[in-house]
Design a protein around this nucleic acid. Sequence first.
RNA 1: GGAGGGGUGGCCGAGCGGCUUAAGGCAGCGGUCUUGAAAACCGCCGUAGGUUUAUCCCUACCGUGGGUUCGAAUCCCACCCCCUCCGCCA
Length: 423
Amino acid sequence: MLDIRKIDQDPETFQSRLAARGSDLSLSEVTTLSKRRRELIVRTEELRHQKSATESSMKTADKKGPEFATFRDQMRELSKEIKELAHTLKDVEEQLNAAVLQIPNLPDEDLPVGNSDTDNRAVRDEGTKPSFPFTPKEHWELGEQLGYLDFERAVKVAQSRFSVLKGPLARLERALIQFMLDLHTETHGYTELLTPFLVNYDSMQGTGQFPKFKEDAFILERDQLALIPTAEVPVTNLHREEILNGAEMPIRYTAYTPCFRREAGSYGRDTRGLIRQHQFQKVELVQFVRPEESDAALEQLTSHAEEVLKRLGLHYRVMLLCTGDLGFSAAKTYDLEVWLPGQNAYREISSCSNFRDFQARRAGIRYRPEPNAKPQLCHTLNGSGLAVGRTLVAILENYQNEDGSITVPEVLVGYMGGKTVIK
RNA sequence: GGAGGGGUGGCCGAGCGGCUUAAGGCAGCGGUCUUGAAAACCGCCGUAGGUUUAUCCCUACCGUGGGUUCGAAUCCCACCCCCUCCGCCA
């Protein structure tokens, strides 16, 4: 959520910066409602002031005298008027709030301006593409040939876009989760969390999924809960409506969760394989930091996600997203794209974003810089560290052998019970 | 799911129609004292909104939303959450 007062001060600047990310949203509704809101507040406060003055006169007045009766009639009038104004004010505030919640975050100034992923800027790449003396296969082919990846039975059990991993591939998924969590907790200093996988609507609004992207979520209407689309939701909302202790910042959390997405609007894309599923597993990194530290924190958090790829020996590149490709809540995002030789393409495996105070304002996440100082909004960041299913895909495709077997990356051998080859 | 009890500032906790400007305590911050620290004493110390250069000032907030009343933290209703017991259960 953007700062309404800042929009009031300079709507033109906001309008033009929002235009950079392709939003043609008009801010005039916001400024109009905001003005109306202030007028109503001033008027109700005047009346309330009168009311409390009258009330204290009544305390001492003779309860049976004619004076008391006059006061009582005045109070009756005032109360009625205040009640009406309060209702109108509430109405206006709800409209204003609803309007502001629809507005995406402002992109940072240093982003490439563009409309789509073709305008993203490659920042760096690490590692090298492996070469194969044979034509590398795609992961779904490898997995199904090995008999450890089953899409057909997943349809029977659930629906399309679900999958079943079996035997060594199920273990590989678990090994990856364990490996990532160990790295982030033991080397990068994150605290591990295991959170609810269902969250309430307030949480979904706090991180920006609701109200605008409600159709993308799996919702349990009866219980007023949503399946989490990412661990970002329960982890960031952990501190919703809290004032954090500045001395304990930055706060860094990592959490493994399954993630559930309807993938509405992506029909026909990536229908084959594990790339785009309704359920996938992910290890997430989340940070709560002081505003002045968030730029550095994004670089650091991104490097933490990259470290996973480096240790797994996977070639990847880092893309700085252009203004038009930015997610709703993000001010700046780096995507990590891993090389998939079977698909002969780079695919997104992590997305690391700085949300500045956008989520913090929605969710009321503040901190006290010094004891007794005024609370202020903190900055939130998060990134995948990494998407586990896509990491498994990358291992299958990059570590495949001509006979269809898969070499286990060295760092995972211990997590695989000593197994060095999946066949 | 059923019965009972309860939600008051960062925490504990009093208040149960107008003497609340939400007592008191703890924690925190500043000061006196001290070689230093502790203790003691003194002072400050909730959040948000409006106004303002700023101070000031004003208004709201006692789980949430309604209602009763001239007036609600206080009475009534609904909902949410927590605790205890029962039921169910990995």
